[in-house]
Amino acid sequence: MKRYKTIILLILFQFVCILNGFSQEKSIPKSLKVYEKDGIKAKSFTFEGIESYLNQKNDTLYVINFWATWCVPCVKELPHFEKLNQKYKNGKFKMILVSLDFPKMIESRVIPFIKQKKLKAEVIVLNDPDANSWIEKVAKEWSGAIPATVIYRNDTRKFYEQSFTEQELETEIQSFIN
């Protein structure tokens, strides 16, 4: 009897482990910090948190843009991202704007920027200074220059180290939809 009990316990244990595994895959790791000002929130993450945003398996089309308030070409292309987010957001579509601003700039620059530009796409902050450890996990070919964008759905993925016009970005989004 005792042997059976042990086996059943082991099986139950494994089952729990598997369940845990599944739930972990879908959830986003806890944020480092939540910045809040003027009713606008921005969560910051280490790369582990960002990585789960880059590897969701749920039929949603993800557009993930790496930017910073001090990056002139990034700021220039953000209105195109915002406009296309408004256009596609009601479908299976999720846009995430990953700010690489330094932590001390989040409250003084990033949140006022979100407010001023009326950004509706989700802004999260990547705070992980050892960039060499994670740049190639975003895309092997990324040199580290911003702006940079990943578009993916499940296992189909494209990486762009460039600036977009609205037309160029929509063409790329459409190439995933059609």
């Binding site: 002139v72 690489l100 960039a131 060499n132 740049i135 990324w142 580290g144 220059a145 911003i146 702006p147």
Partner: peptide, 8 residues
């Protein structure tokens, strides 16, 4: 590799 500002 490191993050940096793209060359203009």
């Amino acid at each position: 590799k490191a993050i940096g500002c793209s060359i203009k």
